[in-house]
Write a protein that binds this DNA or RNA. Structure first.
Length: 846
DNA sequence: GCAAGGTC
């Protein structure tokens, strides 16, 4: 029996389709798909199925000095037990094995890991390696005819990365966490990739904080062609801006001192006309964009409103469903195997973009664009020939799918052409103008017009805004319709947005196509960044400062650069794995020599920053500081730093994670609080004001309590709580805790209409433009609960809309029932899902 | 309960 091993199930299935000419069976071994035809079996791994880690005796952070991790043994341990079991079962009977993992460094390592697992149970079976960069008939068949061996040097390069990342990351993470006494959920992490990424964000924030804005002025005029007496100033006027030559002789628009700006403006205002002194026309070719790699896909998706995480998660679903190619790729050059014309023909059957695909088929020649990166990992992201039916995709999925399709169309489409028109005019000054600055007063206007639509016809995501400047000739006199002097200030650099951050990481060579967006998520999870665009917390600044002082490599991109060079050397046989690992261990030892003496200093600094991140302002009771705290039950509240002497507290809303804003309440001197809860994020404001308002507001009784009304006479009332939330609750609280939620915002109107089932008045919420007919609060809540149950599954990372549907078909409607399912049983029922995946979800649900 | 890298 011949056994083929791929990196993922999807690849195994597609490979099997090709090699079996579509005639294969699927069986399950240890809950894993195995494809079978003739004497061949094909199994897909799930990336790395083993992980490097320290032995269990190093698990306790307090018992082991972090420095001991440097020379601790490192072992490999299976993480995907089902897959490892299935691989072993199949290997026993194999008389030939083919490693067909991805064609990149990590793929080589994953292949070697499979090889080692196979060797444990079958010492003699010959193992081949095949390499192909896209799963197409030609490439796959070619690769199987030209079998090679595993490149153990390349795999060793990957292993060097694993061990260096583990040793540096784990030892420094434990050191920082222990020094600041932050154990448990709130440990303080650093690593080769997260370190430099965090430093990027912190450095930008430092620039912003150090920024000193400068005043400047700009002058504008609206010009109008005089010919054609009926020209309409509102319609035909065009923009012109004052400019001059600065001391270097370069063109400048900004005037840096007010007196000069006023003087020039005085002349401009008095001017009667402007004469055209030069007209320059230029044609510019606007080439279509390159094919999508992961980073450019994320960037494009972010320009239509998707976060990096969301874009990748949708792309993953579209890939699994077979509509687009693999979404994690560095490649920006289509493989030779891709027949663009054939793909366009298939796409021409699609709704929305079918006509656009067809229009491209009319071209004589289709020559797709190419980017700078040509790699062997996977093809650039493009649509497959399989088109989704209208009902198969959600709105978001469709929008992202259409983006991928249109990007492909654009790469096959012709250039666009612009005509640029630059007009310079000299102002003719009136008799009243007093000559303060005698130099010429010139204005410039830049117009642009799209003369050939080109690829924009099929790719509407780039702006094609034109700016209007009419056809004028040199010497022509123009009217000045309006003039303006605008006072402005230079702006600090902008914070990195998520997609800009990912692009910068790529430029710096840190992270990979598959991890960069996860790293950003990790920084959020660790409490290093908040909001979007991400803003660093005080803790993040302290971590970067401490690292810069004692372990600069961990926040510098040089560590990756050095590692890349070493990996290159290992792969080419110039260096040994041990040599590289030992060098790195020595370097880390030197870092620790410095660090151990500064343990307390570092810890103090981190602890102070952690506290500063939580400070709100003075306690009204004792004058000490109010802090955002977390109760034992895990909910947030405001408490005094003077506790237990001072027991002053204020509640916070129960939804979300509090973020302290810069804005301070005038009445109480407390910072405003924002509650971060994804789409439900809202500003809570000053917690003292919220509490005071609730104390002042009277409860409004609307009916009888369904729980205790008959027995104890409890009533239902609209209440505002000190935490700012509102609800319909029983007047006998806390003896009766019956309650129904109400929206936080808007005025609540109690109408005369009554719910027949519950004998309660219908409610209307007035906020924004449209009043919201909430109706009977009990009916409303029931509806809400049933909606929640559906979308709840999707809160688990890795479960998208489609998977949630599949789970619901299998009778799993919410997270709690998912947690109760037997992984193997559920995997049997749900297509394409393995028991390890289910276990993974269950772990995440906890 | 650490990293970063696969995959989902």
């Amino acid at each position: 029996m011949e056994l083929i091993v791929t990196e993922k199930d999807n690849a195994a299935r597609r490979l099997s389709e090709i090699l079996s000419n579509g005639d294969f069976d699927t069986e399950r071994r240890a809950g894993v798909n195995v494809y079978r035809w003739g004497g061949t079996r094909c199994i897909g791994l799930s990336g790395h199925v083993v992980a490097v880690d320290f032995p269990p005796e190093y698990d306790d952070w307090r018992d082991v000095e972090p420095v001991e991790l440097i020379d601790a043994p490192v072992r490999k341990r299976p993480t995907q037990e089902g897959i490892v079991r299935a691989l072993r079962l199949l290997s026993r009977d194999a008389d030939r094995v083919v490693i067909a993992t991805d064609y990149d460094r990590e793929g080589e390592l994953i292949g070697k890991e499979a090889y080692e697992l196979i060797r444990e149970v079958n010492e003699d079976v010959p193992v081949d390696r095949v390499r192909f960069s896209s799963i197409t008939e030609n490439e796959v068949r070619g690769a199987f005819e030209d079998r090679d061996e595993i490149d153990f040097d390349l795999a060793a390069a990957g292993e060097a990365r694993q061990i260096i990342d583990l040793i540096w990351g784990a030892s420094l993470t434990r050191f920082l966490s222990l020094s600041a006494r932050q154990l448990g959920d709130d440990f303080i992490s650093v690593g080769r990739v997260q370190g430099p990424t965090l430093k990027l964000i912190v450095d930008r924030e430092r620039e912003i904080e150090a920024f000193d804005p400068e005043d400047y002025w700009e002058l504008f005029a609206d010009l109008l062609k005089r010919e054609g007496a009926e020209s309409d100033p509102d319609k035909d006027a065009f923009d012109a801006q004052y400019f001059y030559e600065d001391d270097d002789g370069t063109e400048a628009e900004r005037v840096w001192d007010e007196a000069t700006a006023e003087a020039v403006y005085g002349r401009l205002r008095e001017a009667e006309a402007a004469t055209v002194s030069s007209v320059r026309r230029r044609r510019r070719t606007d080439e279509p964009p390159a094919p999508f790699n992961t980073t450019q896909f994320i960037r494009a998706a972010s320009s239509i409103g998707y976060s990096a995480q969301r874009a990748m998660s949708i792309a993953e679903d579209l890939y699994t469903a077979g509509f687009i190619t693999y979404p994690r790729t560095d490649n920006t050059v289509y493989p030779e195997d891709l027949d663009e014309r054939e793909l366009l023909e298939e796409l021409s059957m699609g709704r929305e973009f079918g006509d656009d695909a067809e229009s491209l088929l009319e071209l004589d020649d289709i020559e797709p664009t190419e980017g700078d990166e040509e790699t062997t990992d996977h093809p650039p992201i493009h649509p497959t020939g399989e088109l989704p039916a209208a009902s198969e995709l959600s709105d978001d999925e469709w929008e992202v799918y259409e983006l991928v399709v249109r990007r492909f169309l654009a790469t096959c489409a012709p250039d666009a052409e612009w005509e640029h028109l630059r007009v310079v005019t000299e102002v003719e000054e009136g008799d009243d103008a007093v000559g303060i600055d005698e130099g010429l007063l010139r204005l410039k206007s830049n117009g642009k017009r799209l003369t050939e639509e080109g690829y924009h016809a099929v790719y509407p995501y780039f702006s094609t805004n034109e700016s209007y400047v009419p056809d004028v000739t040199e010497g022509e006199a123009l009217g000045i319709v309006e003039t303006a002097l605008e006072a402005k200030q230079t702006q600090p650099p902008r914070r990195y947005g998520q997609s800009r951050l990912i692009e910068t990481m790529e430029d710096m060579g840190i992270g990979t196509k598959a991890t960069r967006h996860d790293v950003i998520q990790k920084l959020y999870d660790r409490g290093y960044i908040e909001s979007d665009p991400p803003r660093p917390t005080g803790l993040a600044k302290a971590v970067v400062e401490a690292s810069e002082e004692f372990a600069d490599r961990i926040v510098s991109d040089e560590m990756t650069a050095q590692l890349e060079a070493d990996m290159q050397a290992i792969a080419s046989g110039e260096k040994e794995f041990d040599e590289v690992a030992d060098e790195s261990r020595e370097m880390l030892s030197r870092v620790f020599e410095e660090l151990v003496d500064s343990r307390e200093e570092v810890g103090d600094h981190l602890q102070k920053s952690l506290k500063a991140d939580k400070q709100l302002g003075p306690c009204p009771e004792c004058g000490d500081t109010l802090l955002v705290r977390k109760s034992r039950a895990g909910s947030y509240f405001v408490g005094c730093d003077g506790y237990p002497e001072c027991e002053y507290t204020l509640p916070l809303p129960s939804t979300g994670k509090p973020l302290i804003l810069d804005e301070v309440c005038d009445d109480h001197g407390l910072n405003h609080v924002k509650m971060l809860a994804g789409r439900k994020t809202f500003v809570h404001g000053c917690p003292q004001c919220q509490a005071d308002e609730a104390d002042e507001e009277e409860d409004e009784v609307i009916g009888e309590c369904p729980d205790c009304g008959e027995e104890h006479g409890g009533d239902l009332a609209i209440k505002r709580l000190r935490s700012g939330s509102r609800l319909v609750g029983c007047t006998r609280y806390p003896d009766c805790d019956y309650s129904l939620p109400l929206p936080r915002r808007g005025e609540i109107e109690v109408t005369d209409e009554t719910c027949e089932e519950h004998d309660l008045p219908h409610l209307v919420v007035h906020s924004g433009d449209e009043p919201w007919e909430l109706g009977c609060p009990i009916c409303n809540y029931r509806e809400y609960q049933s909606r929640q149950a559906g979308s709840e599954l999707e809160t688990i990372d890795g479960i998208g809309e489609k998977t949630a549907e599949k789970l619901k078909d299998a009778g799993v409607n919410d997270v709690s029932s998912l947690k109760e399912m037997e992984p193997d049983a559920l995997a049997e029922q749900v297509d394409g899902i393995g028991p390890d995946t289910v276990r993974d979800w269950q772990a995440k649900a906890d």
